[in-house]
Design a binder for these strands. Structure first.
Lengths: 158, 158
DNA sequence: GATTATTATTTAACATGTTAAGTGTCAAAG
DNA sequence: CTTTGACACTTAACATGTTAAATAATAATC
């Protein structure tokens, strides 16, 4: 009796938020990985590019937060993307500590084309799962994230 | 007008499954990281240890799947945990390709103590969010993972 | 039983996660 | 204007993610 691909003994660790969130994310990302591989861009690089596209001239700190990458990772990613000619970095003249990032024309072209494929994949997922179901899940996830991130006021002893 | 910690412009990428799942997972894991750091065990090592605890004598392939780590990562993790005396590896006598993993007494002691702390943290999260809400979210995540993982039968022309 | 295919694991190479420490810039205080 | 502190990265070091290729052992085939 062979075990199928997702058959492992149902145990406590499999029914926890960290594992369930990780597995769900893997399931989603598996659909996008072929596209990313086609354009030779990693998952994290893609997130960074998408955020830069949405907010041209964003600074590194906000970019890191929005793309969910740590500052040291972002440093390397920006260096890599710049050497590939996809983005350009500059200094904020008002605060020369800050790095400002924008897409090059080449980066813009890449995002335009890959963005179409990405949108199609997301639409497929939406068809498979149902738009409302995804919206509900997104709402639940965002609420949970907020509730866990908001640190309780220490004055409300408890 | 300073921007608060989680204030970034609300844009499309922030309302997608990959980002939302990533952020939710980060919010949860932030609660466990201090404990993990205390015992000098990484997030992935902890998952591996927990699964081994649940299924003593598990083989590497099932262990990797249950702990959500890739085979090459597992190789390194097991080597590291073995060198610390927390686990022991052996060969399956019926199939000498397979590596079987079990906890040492030291590993068992570590998991017992840290497991208490972990359970307390999880209980805190449950109190903050509500047990039913977590259960519903886990159900939704598991359903979505299943629905995305199940490859449609090619005979049902699509 | 030798050949071939398949499976389980490992190794290698590069990218990122993670933490700590270092560097340059701005801002407040003296 | 200098000192101190805070902020925005950057670098370094180690662990893991990810893919491809290599090894070893089993299974299937002729």
């Amino acid at each position: 009796m062979p075990r199928s691909r997702d058959d492992f003994p149902l145990s406590a660790t499999q029914r926890t938020l960290p594992i369930a969130l990780l597995r769900a994310r893997e399931a989603v990302m598996d659909r996008f990985r072929p596209m990313l591989r086609n354009i030779d861009v990693t998952e994290q690089q893609w997130r960074v590019l998408r955020v830069v596209q949405e907010t041209e001239g964003i600074d590194a700190t906000q970019l890191a937060r929005a793309a969910c990458v740590l500052a040291p990772s972002l440093t390397r990613i920006l260096k890599s993307l710049e050497s590939r000619g996809l983005i350009a970095q500059g200094r904020d003249e008002n605060d020369r500590r800050r790095t400002l990032v924008r897409l090059t024309e080449e980066g813009n072209a890449l995002l335009h084309e890959a963005g179409l494929v990405s949108a199609r994949i997301y639409a497929e997922i939406e068809t498979k799962l149902g738009a409302e179901r995804i919206a509900d899940l997104l709402d639940a996830l965002e609420r949970m994230t907020d509730d866990l991130t908001t640190q309780e006021d220490p004055r409300n002893g408890g």
